[in-house]
Nucleic acid binder design. Structure first.
Lengths: 339, 339
DNA sequence: GCTCAGTTGTACATCGTTATACGACCATCG
DNA sequence: CGATGGTCGTATAACGATGTACAACTGAGC
């Protein structure tokens, strides 16, 4: 164990509280005593015990960030941004992953590490609105990220997924594509309106006067490269002949491209591909990836600021849905060409 | 604030300690009282305040993992494994990144979040042995990962980088390659023996009786895809004509491949490429990547177990260098072909 | 009925910090 | 010279949990 306030006080010949005052830069300490205390602190190598401080203050300065999967670069990049933003507000980030499993997500929202974390930023996958209703207020502020929308009194930060998806699809229709597949519908939820990116796909096709061919929707189990490749192969195996693919995220788009290339289908000549997330990896494939780029920095900033704002008093805040910006980044996977 | 032991004790009509005994499953509590206390706990929704418990016990159950960059999938994947392993030992992981900057690395080793974390797993880049000598024992156990070796009394877990690099180079020479470039030497340290993968490259070339052409070593500033591409371009621009590339890590290898392809150089026909790390992304490029695959699960497991072992008493442990296994995974980027 | 041992539960101190309340000191002023 | 008010510092009580020491109760054995 290191030295405590008491040890320092003893050595400096002052009271414990005076040392505390020096440490925290409180007023009413003579420069002389202050100096004496400082010397004692240096000599003993005293450093405050944050656990004790937190117990006393009721705050820990730690916020948790729970994402489905760190292996997905989108979340890794987002996590990095959150950590940096939090540091700027003097908060530390405790990172956890849920594997996108509902039970783990529920666990995390309900007093995960009680009293150790001050607040939680969660990017859910399977979580349902009903899971949120039982949550208690003293578990601290909760901010939700991601594609889903919830009818629960919590801050939600997400780009306008429907509009973003429509932008992506519109880009494809603008290239003359007519049979646009959607890859990445979660099997169970494919038909639900909660699936915002899929809804955007439908809406935009209808708006463009194109048939909304549900056989071009490929369900997947997960959200990774393998799932994208598998879904692409499944589509082709069952005879679908899309001339474009809009994937739920970049990883699946990359998997799909790999599957296409392996079967000798040329990208973008025969099939254009658009992803979602703008992960760095998408710029470096043999065919760089056109994608919807959510403003990750803004998402991280807003999420952290929201948690911090709720922690620092101003309790008058109403839960809000905040929509950061996004852009469509066009690259080789949808490069125009002469057919 | 939630309910405390005191509140529960009051409601159940017993002492605080008895409630504590129930919560911790201590003996000497009648089933009857136990039941009464449980009911009170449920009614009030009591959950232990871990901060207080930690203060009392002197442990927090949190270990920190500091990696250079979460955006590098290798570290993201490693972090995921560490989190899971730690959870199995009832530890939570606090994740931080150092951007590979020495000052941040030093900061992290020296009482980062004092008393909040029980131990630290660090993957350093720029850290020097001298930085470690001033560290105090009461900052808790420290385990070092990564390519570097330190003459300091701490556990170090890393694969045999020299041997692994030699394996990679031998694979290339076995394919008949003779002008094998190395991409990713840190500019300042390129000449130092500390650069283990580069040393492996030299040793294997000499062993194979090949010239060790230093003009085929490309220095970089960072460790990302852009750095790999830039280094590759720099090599080619200055007239080097390698027939193979061994990159410090997969990201740089992927960047290099992209640069080669953009210049019309065919991979693997004209230039074979080997990376290091075995990130999932390497399997999905247009040209899948041959790479050295460190056993990430073993690294994570060993690191966590080492920290936990030191925390749970057995102080007789001497610092050790542990070398987990690795394998060479051959894929398309070094596929044999007829020239 | 009394001691003794074993069980069940309580009171109090403690971890290291900060907040509250108050005492000691100084100079100033009437 | 005594009252006033500011400065500087101290003593003590929290925060919520756990460990120690001990008290109260039970039943068995004589």
């Amino acid at each position: 164990m290191g030295a405590s306030l008491k040890d320092v006080a003893h050595l400096a010949g002052v009271s414990v509280k005076t040392v505390s005052n020096v440490v925290n830069n409180h007023p009413h300490v003579t420069p002389a005593t202050r100096e004496r205390v400082r010397r004692a602190i240096d000599e003993l190598g005293y450093r405050p015990n944050l656990t004790a401080r937190h117990l006393r203050k009721g705050r820990t300065g730690i916020i948790a960030l729970a994402v489905p999967e760190l292996g997905n670069p989108y979340f890794a990049e987002l996590a990095g941004a959150v950590i940096d933003t939090a540091a700027r507000h003097d908060y530390t980030v405790l990172l956890d992953h849920t594997a996108g499993r509902r039970e783990k997500e529920v666990l995390v929202t309900q007093g995960f590490r009680t009293h150790v974390i001050d607040g939680l930023i969660l990017s859910p996958i399977e979580l349902e609105t009903s899971d949120l209703l039982g949550r208690r207020p003293d578990d601290g502020p909760l901010v939700l990220l991601g594609e889903r929308e919830y009818e629960a009194p919590y801050d939600q930060i997400a780009i306008d997924n429907v509009a973003a998806a429509r932008t992506a699809v519109r880009h494809l229709t603008g290239l003359g594509r007519r049979r646009i597949a959607f890859i990445g519908a979660r099997r169970e939820t494919a038909r639900r309106p909660a699936h915002l990116r899929l809804r955007g796909w439908r809406e935009e096709l209808l708006a463009a006067g194109l048939p909304c061919d549900e056989s071009l929707v490929a369900a997947t189990d997960g959200y990774g490269r393998w799932d994208g490749a598998a879904a692409m192969n499944a589509l082709l195996d069952r005879g679908a002949r899309p001339d474009a693919v809009f994937a739920y995220n970049d990883l699946m788009a990359l998997g799909a491209i790999r599957a296409l290339v392996e079967r000798g289908v040329r990208v973008p000549q025969e099939v254009s591909v658009v992803g979602f997330d703008d992960i760095e990896e998408g710029r470096f494939g043999a065919v760089s990836l056109t994608t919807v780029a959510p403003d990750k920095q803004a998402i991280a900033r807003l999420a952290v600021e929201r948690v911090v704002a709720r922690l620092t008093g101003t309790s008058g805040l109403r839960p809000e849905r905040i929509q950061p910006g996004y852009t469509l980044v066009t690259r080789e996977s949808t490069a125009p060409h002469t057919v």
